[in-house]
């Protein structure tokens, strides 16, 4: 019995702490309709941050050319994940609802970060750049959507699904195997 209890404790301990274990920086940003969203509003939920610029060919790879990102958004928001796409810097000044609609976005909200403060707090480098925040408010994944940095949609299927694998692990309460990868795409326009 005692052995069993110890084993159970060890299992829980190894599952509970994401490898990055870094507290997600707080932010409050307006969406495309002018409504404010704070990270604190979503405490107790898993949150995805996705840096976006619909003019970037690497973003188009995952939206217009494949529908990959909208599919992921639909799949995970149905699992009660909050998906916040963020337009930082110059992109925040030009992004529009019609652009998002044309791209097929199914994000919970598209937030505007014109000052770049939130992007810099998360060290967002590229579009796309994916962050997963646990129910406890810790960063569990930081990096690329997948392993193939090409701009071609036909390369999506054969790529390692870094982001989706990490999000599945977080939702299952398991340890994220690859918690930090190099994001790829266009530079965030601070």
């Amino acid at each position: 019995m005692r052995t069993l209890a110890l084993a159970a404790f060890a299992a829980v301990a190894s599952l509970a702490t994401p490898i990055l274990a870094k507290e997600a920086p707080a932010f409050t940003l307006k969406d495309l309709d002018g409504k404010e969203h704070s990270l604190a509003d979503f405490k107790g939920k898993t949150v995805v941050l996705e840096w976006v610029n619909f003019g970037c060919p690497f973003v188009k790879k995952h939206y217009h050319k494949s529908g990959n990102m909208p599919e992921l958004q639909e799949t995970y928001t149905e699992k009660d994940v909050v998906w916040l796409s963020i337009a930082t810097g110059k992109t925040a000044e030009s992004i529009s609802s019609s652009e998002a609609e044309k791209a097929g976005s199914k994000a919970t909200a598209i937030l505007l970060d014109p000052s770049g403060e939130t992007g810099k707090a998360y060290d967002a480098k590229t579009t796309p750049h994916m962050i997963i925040i646990t129910e406890e408010g810790e960063i569990a994944y930081d990096g690329a959507i997948d392993s193939n940095s090409s701009s071609k949609a036909e390369d999506i299927d054969s790529a390692d699904k870094y982001f989706a694998d990490a999000l599945d692990a977080v939702l299952e309460g398991e340890e994220v195997a690859t918690a930090k990868t190099k994001p790829y795409g266009c530079s965030v326009k601070y």
């Binding site: 060919p57 701009s151 266009c186 530079s187």
Partner: peptide
């Protein structure tokens, strides 16, 4: 190739 300037990238 991928060609970029400070504002845009074009494969």
């Amino acid at each position: 190739w991928l060609a970029c300037d400070n504002d845009a990238c074009v494969p």
